[in-house]
Simulated assay, not measured.
Amino acid sequence: MKTIIVIPARGGSKRLPNKNVLTLGNLPLIVHSILYAKANLHVVDAIYVTTDDVEIKKIALSYGVNVIDRPSNISGDFEPTVSAVKHVLQSIEDDIETVILLQPTNPLRPKTLLEDCFKVYKEKVYDSVFTVSQSHHKLGKIKNNVFKPFNYKPGQRSQDLEPLFFENGLIYITKATSILNNEIITNNGFPIKVEHVFSLVDIDTQNDLDYANYIYSSFNKIKS
């Protein structure tokens, strides 16, 4: 029974056209997730990129990973990610037990995060694990031009907020059987808390990409 990494990278994007091949640092965006996957080959058996885009396919093949051609009917703006991951499982002959999902729009990850998450997944026998981060914002809703606080009372200190968390998109690990049932996060999915600036990088707009490049260059300066 094998463990695979799946990187879903379609060509279409409305808010940031061709975002998966735009440059972060000196590399196309998708390459960051490919290199992270390859750095974890001691954990997984194979890496697959699923795409409907010729350029993305060419880049992925040049880095020596497998490519699954994604059909157009599951490549639209409103198609859930699980459809592409499920298609990968249905397209390969290997007996897959576990799928690790790396989204190319979350290109920066702590070095040992995948290995740490996989250890929790195996030791605790969860059907899925996924990464989350705590929100430290005072959140609210606007109705009829009136702001209604959601997670605080006016005047409350931010450090006294009730802890709320968001999916940061860095890593998802799921049993293949759950993927085939159209689930990435299962009912007993275990949230792994990540407090790292990389968890704030999620690229959907040009501003997001600019911020990612700032974070990326800052960490490279620290390394050098």
Rank of each mutant, 00 (worst) to 15 (best):
N66D: 13
V67Y: 06
P71I: 03
N73K: 12
I74S: 09
S75V: 02
P80S: 08
T81L: 08
A84D: 11
A84E: 14
A84Q: 14
V85M: 04
K86S: 08
V88C: 06
S91I: 02
E93G: 11
E93D: 15
D94S: 12
D95R: 14
I96V: 15
E97L: 00
V99L: 02
L101H: 11
L102Q: 01
L102I: 04
T105P: 00
N106T: 06
L108G: 03
P110T: 02
K111T: 10
L113E: 08
C117Q: 00
K119V: 03
K122L: 05
K122V: 02
E123V: 04
V125S: 14
Y126D: 02
Y126W: 04
Y126C: 08
D127R: 13
S128V: 07
F130R: 07
V132S: 14
S135C: 12
L139R: 14
L139H: 06
G140Y: 03
G140R: 05
I142T: 12
N145E: 03
V146W: 08
V146T: 11
F147M: 12
N151H: 05
D160G: 11
L161Q: 07
P163G: 11
F166R: 13
E167S: 07
N168Y: 07
G169T: 01
Y172R: 13
I173E: 05
T174D: 08
S178T: 10
I179V: 15
N181I: 02
